[in-house]
């Protein structure tokens, strides 16, 4: 997919930062080297960025720079969202006890033990399993969650999102908000569970890696 580019000049005008700031942030590794795309234009060489990516980063640095020193900020950005494992096998899941066999049987029957199950999906299983164990939902409601969230998994992986499980007059409703934002329900609606997908991914990642350490 071709993504929209922004030239360095436009970026500075749009965000109101100066050349010095941009270069300083680059020196502090707050803006990674790979983001600087050099292209020759009619005025010579120009530097471009992926618009969405860089605007978000610059806004975040601007909002944080009064409270956090630039050196500390690096650690915040160092956590790459794609550092999650790409998949786990069904065997891994059961062995490390990430998801109980009941849930696996219900949703992942079609996979064999050695099959690679995508990490997103594992997280979804984990979420359902967790809620089941806490007695917040019934098994058929688990099915509802699966049906609702599954089509958006790719989406929330890229952009993060918030998951809501609500009930009104005993009727369950599953809501996915992506990118993350606030959802407002009418006062009769009881929010049973609210979960940020990013938090969910990290939680599952920690469990799956924690399991490795035990071995």
């Amino acid at each position: 997919m071709e993504q929209e580019l922004i030239s360095k000049k436009d970026l500075l005008i749009k965000t109101g930062i100066s050349y010095g700031q941009l270069y300083r942030w680059k020196r502090k590794k707050l803006i990674p080297e790979e983001w600087f795309i050099r292209k020759s234009t009619f005025t010579g060489q120009e530097t471009f960025f992926l618009k969405e990516e860089v605007l978000e980063r610059v806004e975040r640095i601007k909002s944080m720079k009064d409270d956090v020193s630039l050196d500390d900020m690096v650690t915040v950005f160092d956590k790459k969202p794609d550092s999650f494992p790409a998949y786990l096998t069904k065997e891994d899941i059961l062995k490390r006890n990430i998801v109980s066999s009941v849930v696996i049987e219900q949703f992942a029957k079609k996979f064999t033990l050695e099959d690679r199950i995508s990490f997103d999906l594992v997280c979804l299983y984990y979420l359902i399993d967790k809620m089941l164990r806490e007695g917040k939902i019934s098994r058929s409601e688990g099915e509802l969650i699966y049906q609702t969230v599954e089509p958006y998994l790719q989406h929330v992986h890229q952009k993060d999102g918030v998951f809501y499980f609500t009930r009104k007059m005993g009727v369950p409703v599953v809501t996915v908000v992506s990118p993350p934002g606030d959802a407002h329900f009418d006062p009769e609606v009881g929010i049973i569970e609210k979960y940020s997908f990013h938090k969910l991914f990290i939680e599952v990642k920690e469990i799956s890696q924690g399991g490795k350490k035990d071995e």
Partner: peptide, 22 residues
Amino acid sequence: TDMMEGDDLDIETANIKVVRGN
């Protein structure tokens, strides 16, 4: 240099294609 960019530029002797600064 082809390009020099910065906030405060004080250049006495140089041969530059593009200078951008505040």
